[in-house]
C-alpha cells in the first residue's frame, strides 16, 4: 500500500496543524528536559526512562519496570508509582501516542522517510511488521537470561534522549545507522517494523478511547494521499474502506501512532480525532444507506 503513487486529492498538506502540534509536543518535552542542563531551570530532571518533575512527580517508563522485573530486581515504590502514572496515561491516550508525540527518534525516522520520498527510493529489505513483537519478546528473554538490562546497551530511543541531555558519546553513530537504513534500506524500518519500545506501547493502546476516525469516509476519492503519508498505512484500510462490510470508521489498530498526518493531508477532510469506545459503522458522519 505504501508503494501506491502519491496522487494528490486536492489537499496534500504535508505540514498541517497536527504536524506542527506534534513537533511542538516532541520538541517541547525534549526542551523541558534540556531546560535544566542548558538553562539551569530545573523543571524536569532525569530522562524518559525515569524522571522527576518539579521535585515531586515521578514518571517511569513501564517498559523499564518490566525489564527490571525480568532481570530479577524488585524496584522501589517510586518506580512503581511513576510507572503506574505513565501506564494510565498511555492506556487512556493510546500507547503509540508515545511514538508519535513524545519519542525523539520519531523526528529522526520522519526525516529519513521524508528524504527517502524526496530521493524516490523504492523497495529494499522486506521486514514483517510483526517482527517488532518478536524483538520485544527476545529482548525480555535476553534480559531474564543475562540478569542485566541488556537492551539498554543499544536502545536508540533512550540513547538519543539521554544523549541529548547527558552527552551522546558515540551513540550518534547508532542513530545515524538507523537514519541511513530508514532512507536506503527499507521504508520506515525502525519505527514501523523493528522497534520493541513501539511494539510495547502498541500493546498498551488496545483499549484507548482516543482514535483517528475516518468520519467522512463517504467523501473519500481514493487519492491515496493518506496511505502515502501514513507510517503504518495498514491501519487505515479497514475503517476507510470498510463501510460496505459494516466496519466502524475508527482507526483502532494498535499500530496507529495517532500522528494525525492523515488528517493534515486529506483534501476531503475525511479524518478527525474522536473519543469513542465502540466502533460502529453508523458513527460515520455521513453514513448513507447506499454505503
Amino acid at each position: 500500500m505504501s508503494q501506491a503513487p502519491a496522487t494528490t486529492g486536492g489537499g496534500n498538506r504535508a505540514i498541517g496543524k497536527w504536524w506542527i502540534m506534534r513537533r511542538l509536543s516532541q520538541l517541547g518535552i525534549l526542551g523541558l528536559f534540556l531546560l535544566g542542563p542548558l538553562g539551569g531551570v530545573w523543571v524536569v530532571t532525569g530522562n524518559l526512562n525515569s524522571s522527576l518533575t518539579l521535585k515531586t512527580l515521578p514518571l517511569t517508563d513501564p517498559l523499564y519496570l518490566l525489564q527490571m522485573l525480568a532481570a530479577g530486581h524488585m524496584p522501589y515504590q517510586t518506580a512503581w508509582i511513576g510507572a503506574a502514572i505513565v501506564l494510565v496515561f498511555y492506556l487512556l491516550l493510546g500507547g503509540r501516542v508515545f511514538c508519535g508525540w513524545v519519542c525523539p527518534m520519531n523526528i529522526v525516522t520522519d526525516s529519513a522517510a521524508w528524504l527517502r520520498a524526496r530521493l524516490r527510493i523504492k523497495g529494499g529489505v522486506r521486514i514483517p511488521r510483526k517482527l517488532r513483537l518478536w524483538v520485544l519478546g527476545g529482548m525480555l528473554v535476553l534480559t531474564a537470561i543475562s540478569g542485566t538490562l541488556a537492551w539498554e546497551l543499544v536502545n536508540p530511543v533512550s540513547m538519543l534522549h539521554r544523549g541529548l541531555i547527558f552527552g551522546m558519546g558515540w551513540g550518534w553513530l547508532i542513530i545515524l545507522a538507523i537514519f541511513l537504513f530508514d532512507v536506503f534500506g527499507s521504508q520506515r524500518a525502525w519505527c514501523g517494523h523493528l522497534c520493541p519500545v513501539g511494539a510495547f506501547y502498541g500493546l498498551l493502546g488496545k483499549a484507548s478511547p482516543v482514535h483517528v476516525s475516518a468520519e467522512k469516509r463517504a467523501a473519500c476519492n481514493d487519492c491515496m494521499d493518506c496511505f502515502a503519508v501514513c507510517p503504518e498505512p495498514q491501519v487505515i484500510t479497514p475503517p476507510l474502506r470498510g463501510a460496505a462490510k459494516g466496519v466502524g470508521p475508527l482507526i483502532n489498530d494498535v499500530d496507529c501512532s495517532k500522528c494525525g498526518r492523515c488528517i493534515d493531508v486529506c483534501g476531503k477532510d475525511v479524518f478527525r480525532f474522536r473519543i469513542a469506545l465502540a466502533n460502529r459503522a453508523a458513527d460515520a458522519a455521513d453514513a448513507s444507506p447506499n454505503n
Binding site: T45, G46, S50, S51, D61, L153, G167, M168, G169
Partner: peptide, 30 residues
C-alpha cells in the same frame, strides 16, 4: 539489572561528580 539509566543521581550530586556512561566507554551505557 536494577539501574534504570535515568541519571537522577547525576543531577542530585551537588558537586557534579557523577556522569552517565556513553556508548564507546567500557562502562554499561547510561
Amino acid at each position: 539489572g536494577a539501574c534504570i539509566r535515568c541519571g537522577l543521581c547525576v543531577r542530585d550530586c551537588p558537586y557534579q561528580i557523577l556522569k552517565l556512561a556513553t556508548p564507546g566507554e567500557h562502562v554499561a551505557t547510561g
